[in-house]
Design a protein around this nucleic acid. Structure first.
Lengths: 189, 189
DNA sequence: AGAAAAAGTTGCTCTATGTCAACGTTTTGA
DNA sequence: TCAAAACGTTGACATAGAGCAACTTTTTCT
């Protein structure tokens, strides 16, 4: 098993080496170019992705054609459209690599089979959902109750990788503001 | 076991009657007055709540003293500050009843004990987290990418109970707008 | 039932942020 | 490596929604 995924499991479960190796074949390594799409709006999501290097972003396009970014998965994180994966409905969001990336892919069926039958994967899945809950709770309150400058300051402090590695356009779409506003805020920091 | 909670389990798991009855003693019925607080900001959350009648809201108060509502749990739903329950950290949000309500309470320790040891409760917890994921994904995109009127229309269609049973003040705090704006939007619907 | 408090409405004004256009800089890809 | 495209910045202007105040209506509490 790839050492980054191995650490991920060992940090979150008490799984033994033997079981870890048994999980390994479910994950296939895949290289994706910068800006490549792993999922488009309207498609049913069929994979869960674990990022080894690079990063993936989850975003949607609203009525006016503007992009809104919901989540960035950096190296050492799972990232997929769980909503589509869980419901089997077509995705309302896109998955796109923002850098040349390497990911491990596991199919939806394999993933949920392991969730049901392998306690360590059940635990991992619970952990993913719990982490998502915690970060989105904060995110909803931020989007409802903070102005752009406070959101930017928070990003700078709590998510420096987003600020340092990604384009202004993506950062703005993550903060829920235009690139123009972001550019002005940065000039006044 | 209370019939509403029983249906909740039976709709989501294949648990048998005997096991259901074994779970029953973990849940204690509690009556709460309208506007009563079950959790305040800064307190560590110690319970999970299942609403039998009435409703609970989860909200926070921002820097300027304005309330932002994140979630409303109506009858037949679990509602608590899972972030505080999971992390053990003091809550950043309040839990308040908006109507005279009856809830079943289960302690944090009992709840997580059952999540680990009773497959049906593990499944229920997974289901709660998955539902939260699905609704908050949509909510983030709405807050980022729709204007107030579109959010109101969506609420009207998708969450009529919120629109019909709750005060304008609460509805506004759920939509992330002021009560003034909501009042004007309603006049123009 | 009736006083007091809370909630809702509406006019006026203000402000943060969006929109559009122009222009310089960086990145991309043949 | 160089042209084209994408990205970033900034000014001028537009606008959705906030803030405040005055007033009416509804709810709460004793």
């Amino acid at each position: 098993m790839h050492p980054i995924l191995k650490s991920y499991f060992q940090d979150r479960t008490q799984i033994d080496e033997e079981k870890l190796e048994a999980l390994s074949p479910f994950f296939k390594e895949k290289t994706v170019k910068k800006n490549e799409f792993l999922l488009r709006e309207g498609e049913v999501c069929r994979f869960n992705y674990f990022v080894l290097s690079g990063c993936l972003r989850l975003f949607s396009v609203n009525n006016e054609g503007l992009e809104n970014t919901r989540y960035i998965a950096f190296e050492g994180k799972f990232g997929t459209s769980f909503t589509s994966l869980i419901t089997g409905n077509p995705s309302i969001e896109y998955i796109q690599s923002l850098e040349k990336s390497t990911v491990l892919t596991i199919t939806k069926d394999d993933f949920f089979f392991l969730v049901e039958n392998e306690p360590a994967v059940n635990k991992i899945y619970r952990n993913i959902l719990e982490s998502a809950y915690i970060t989105t709770q904060k995110r909803i309150y931020d989007l409802q109750g903070s102005d752009s400058l406070d959101r930017l300051k928070w990003l700078l402090k709590q998510q420096p990788r987003i600020f340092n590695r990604l384009s202004n356009k993506v950062i703005a779409s993550y903060l829920g503001i235009t690139q123009y506003t972001l550019s002005r805020l940065k000039a006044n920091l």
